Amino acid sequence: MKILLTALLFLFMLSAGGYAQSQGQMNADAYAGYTKADKQLNTVYQMILRQYAKDTKFIKNLKAAQRLWIQLRDADVAAKFPQEGSYGSVEPMCRAGYLEVYTLNRTKFLKVWLEGIPEGDVCNGSVKTR
């Protein structure tokens, strides 16, 4: 029985080792996730700019809001990690993770202008109805 348990533990360790990643690889993977989310955000943003191009007041306000959102996102991450480089080897992964979450949430927020909202919502403002 002892030999069987030892063999099973050894096999488990071998299989688990195949999934191990270095911290550098985890940092790179997290950054890749953020980069992908940022590209999606930029695609949605550009689509809104094209779709609403005739509404110059809206475009002006959207651009201002986007600039301010970037400042807020960066300030929030800076508040989380005020002393850059002082939080160990996981810091780049954690920073990228927060950036990805903020970016995915912003993309979801902006998609409303592309997808529209149901007719009858009296508070739709500049968002088109479906």
Results as ranks from 00 to 15, higher is better:
86 S>F: 10
89 S>A: 08
47 M>S: 11
127 V>E: 01
37 A>K: 09
84 E>F: 10
117 I>S: 03
70 I>C: 00
123 C>G: 01
30 A>C: 03
112 V>Q: 10
30 A>R: 02
50 R>W: 00
94 C>E: 12
1 M>Y: 08
61 N>W: 13
124 N>Y: 01
80 K>F: 11
34 Y>A: 09
10 F>P: 02
27 N>M: 03
100 E>R: 13
88 G>R: 04
88 G>K: 02
117 I>N: 00
58 F>K: 15
122 V>I: 09
52 Y>V: 00
62 L>D: 14
62 L>F: 14
42 N>H: 15
47 M>V: 03
102 Y>Q: 13
7 A>Q: 12
92 P>H: 12
66 Q>D: 06
91 E>K: 12
68 L>I: 12
4 L>C: 09
121 D>H: 03
12 F>K: 04
10 F>G: 04
79 A>F: 14
127 V>S: 01
87 Y>W: 02
78 A>T: 04
24 G>H: 04
122 V>H: 07
101 V>T: 12
130 R>H: 06
5 L>V: 00
62 L>H: 14
89 S>W: 06
6 T>L: 13
24 G>C: 03
82 P>R: 15
33 G>N: 12
56 T>Q: 14
107 T>H: 06
38 D>A: 08
115 E>L: 06
12 F>M: 12
3 I>D: 00
62 L>Y: 15
28 A>H: 11
23 Q>K: 15
61 N>Y: 14
48 I>N: 07
122 V>C: 05
2 K>H: 12
116 G>L: 09
57 K>F: 09
41 L>M: 07
34 Y>L: 07
75 A>P: 05
28 A>D: 11
121 D>S: 02
11 L>T: 07
57 K>S: 11
19 Y>V: 13
23 Q>H: 14
54 K>D: 13
32 A>V: 05
40 Q>E: 05
67 R>E: 15
52 Y>A: 03
83 Q>R: 02
126 S>M: 03
118 P>N: 02
65 A>N: 13
112 V>P: 00
25 Q>C: 01
116 G>Q: 08
61 N>M: 15
107 T>Q: 11
70 I>M: 02
34 Y>K: 09
109 F>S: 09
37 A>R: 11
43 T>H: 15
99 L>D: 09
22 S>T: 12
129 T>Q: 01
106 R>Q: 14
48 I>Y: 07
128 K>V: 05
62 L>C: 14
76 D>I: 06
59 I>F: 06
123 C>L: 07
59 I>S: 07
20 A>K: 09
125 G>Q: 04
85 G>A: 07
85 G>I: 00
21 Q>H: 01
43 T>V: 15
32 A>C: 06
46 Q>T: 15
